[in-house]
Design a protein around this nucleic acid. Sequence first.
DNA 1: GAATTTTGTTTGCTCCCCAAACAATCTCCG
DNA 2: CGGAGATTGTTTGGGGAGCAAACAAAATTC
Lengths: 162, 162
Amino acid sequence: MASPPVPPNGKPRAGNLDRGMLTALLGYGLRRAQSAVFADFASTFAKAGEALTPGEFGLLVLVERNKGLSQMALARALAIDRSTLVPILNRLQARGLLMRHASPTDGRTHALALTPEGEKALARFTRLVKAHEKRIAAGLSAAETRMLIELLDKVRAGAGSL
Amino acid sequence: MASPPVPPNGKPRAGNLDRGMLTALLGYGLRRAQSAVFADFASTFAKAGEALTPGEFGLLVLVERNKGLSQMALARALAIDRSTLVPILNRLQARGLLMRHASPTDGRTHALALTPEGEKALARFTRLVKAHEKRIAAGLSAAETRMLIELLDKVRAGAGSL
DNA sequence: GAATTTTGTTTGCTCCCCAAACAATCTCCG
DNA sequence: CGGAGATTGTTTGGGGAGCAAACAAAATTC
């Protein structure tokens, strides 16, 4: 009994440890799933030689589908502060994907729009996102995926009307 | 036709705008749900005069259920870099919730444990988390909640084995 | 006992997020 | 018309999350 194979209080825990109540928490499951999905998203784009975050993709889609959008309206749709949006737009604009046009009707606002290159890039990005989505939904049936999206929407609606 | 009630290209969009393909994306729904849940979590704690993030709560539970855990094992369980963990532990330790004990068997590692105040605080936090969970799951039946957690786990398993 | 590996820490960098202040502009109303 | 108030985009300041690289101390391997 000089060298037991598993010390009683040391560091025997191989892979998984006791998560206690966490496994039953919706918020916890949400965080872990989101983190894994984010990692897969990043890896998908990295492998294709592209660089984009999920948030940037959502922003580009929103601008593409709502041309002439103002920064305030976009910030509201993204549920972030308008000051948070500024450096994000700066970066996308510096990459040549997006333009801030002067609004003819309101001198305060900027009318956001994708550049032609932005449109082309978004088409590429969309292909990658679809492949990524296919991968993360691989373990689920089509019905399960639909139900999951629906349940997530219910949670969002109930959590706080953001 | 000098002043149409809704200008054709201006800023008529009242509340919601066109989200295009985003609504069908699992990753997008995940992000939005997570963001709303996070906000509810923060507001729950703020209203109770406590300050804690979901990540900190998860960390405290993990330490409480796995006494003597090392920082590396904890970082692995949280799927973050060990260097990221250091300032988080510093903060919780400065709040008196957690201690880094010297390990008797391994001079390199720290054996993490909650302080008595940490245990008491975690009990308070747990009550708040339960109330929070009840609120975000309010729109779902018990069966739906169970299914949602299960589906989230499947997604995490499929996305990349983090 | 020397070489390698592991652990915790520090430093440096990027990114996300908010709040407060500010100038430019628009709107409202007397 | 014209001033008061509201809105928009920006800047600044602060905090936190995250990674990578480098380092010292300790353990492990050979």
